[in-house]
Design a protein around this nucleic acid. Sequence first.
DNA 1: GCTTTTGTACCGACTGGTCAGTTCAAAGCG
DNA 2: CGCTTTGAACTGACCAGTCGGTACAAAAGC
Lengths: 235, 235
Amino acid sequence: MSAKTANGMTANGMTVGSATTEVSVVTGMTKAEPGGRRGETRQRLYLAAVDLIAEQGFTATTVDAIAERAGVAKGTVFYNFGSKEALFAGLLGHGIQRLTDALAEAAQATPADRPGSRVATLDAIVLAQLRFFDEYGPFARVLLAEMWRTAWQEAIVRLREDALGVYERVLDEAVAAGELREGLDTGTAATAIFGMVLTVAIERRALHPDRPLDEVHATLTELIHGRISGTADPR
Amino acid sequence: MSAKTANGMTANGMTVGSATTEVSVVTGMTKAEPGGRRGETRQRLYLAAVDLIAEQGFTATTVDAIAERAGVAKGTVFYNFGSKEALFAGLLGHGIQRLTDALAEAAQATPADRPGSRVATLDAIVLAQLRFFDEYGPFARVLLAEMWRTAWQEAIVRLREDALGVYERVLDEAVAAGELREGLDTGTAATAIFGMVLTVAIERRALHPDRPLDEVHATLTELIHGRISGTADPR
DNA sequence: GCTTTTGTACCGACTGGTCAGTTCAAAGCG
DNA sequence: CGCTTTGAACTGACCAGTCGGTACAAAAGC
């Protein structure tokens, strides 16, 4: 029950490099990458906050509770972030950045010059998103709940432009390459796929945590490129 | 600023008709069907609450604000629902019921005995969901945000069993009829489609309110039964 | 017919508690 | 040494829920 654990560091214990703690001239804030003292405090606060907010929502989660779960004094929260809102904004931005990285990496990792390869890239991105939200489940819940709230516009704009942009770009390329029907509304399709994967990822964590991820992925890819209906001829 | 006003009676001075207001012997609560005075008050409270909660979230929305927007005194809220939570639970249940009705009606309205017709039924349900959330946008936001919160389990169980059940049943029938691949995980697929449509419906309302619904629907159905990738042959 | 009673629906000032954010002196750490 | 954290007390706003009361219509007495 105590808060001693501290440096547990979620999964991958890899140290993240030299930890220069460079100071942004613009904001006066220290960049504080994960290695430094301050960076570690922030990391712990993010972790505690995202857990609690996923369970209870933003307003219902008190700063005291976040501080306690992070094993940190309340004053530290305000020293580091200035306000509860700023903490949450940072949390959103941080998570969206990591999500975008994960998706972009998946997009780049698949070669893109064989026939049908753009659709294969799409599958890879879906898998990456599924894996990401499988690992950061609470963040998925928070994102889903806050995604359309006007309050966090800046973060949401980045989500759309960056993370959803990865999908949209690949879809556009696929259209250009003739792999997908000309005139497809790639913006809507990107949102659709993203929302679909997000929902399914959360459902799996909440209801079927031991269903293999690959099976879920298989169902989704079937759904996406139509192996689902071999027949298919409405009208 | 004084408190004299009293009998102001907000807007509509019309007397509300016969208003049977039958009393349930079991609960002692008045049934309060939509026509009655109480029913109308509750309706107004639902409407006000769903709007505010969609914008700000459950905890951030005060009972005072709900009462004010509904044109009702704060005491009336507690007279009618007993607590803020009960009001919200009622709101969720009410909305889920209507959603389920809308989906079930769409499912029934399409005949189910021509080849490919189950997939056509699927399209009809998607359209019904799209229309429903287009009309009740704030409810869509609330549902998305609260869908996985443990606090409202009862409502969520009903959502899964009833509303998602409509999808799952049709998918099962389609598998049985050979229209969809044997062994498809219809539970996951149902969640996937539901989440996809929900996300897209909200995005449309928030970002492209005048994009025709039919176009969005077309994109989604393409996505679902694979007209999206005519080519498609990864690996 | 008319008053009196009864029950429902609603009102809004008030209360007791909660919480974001502040302050500050005294450590800890690099 | 200077940046970071601690811990605890404090404030001022805010809020869910309460409670004594009003309004009014329909039944019950007279």
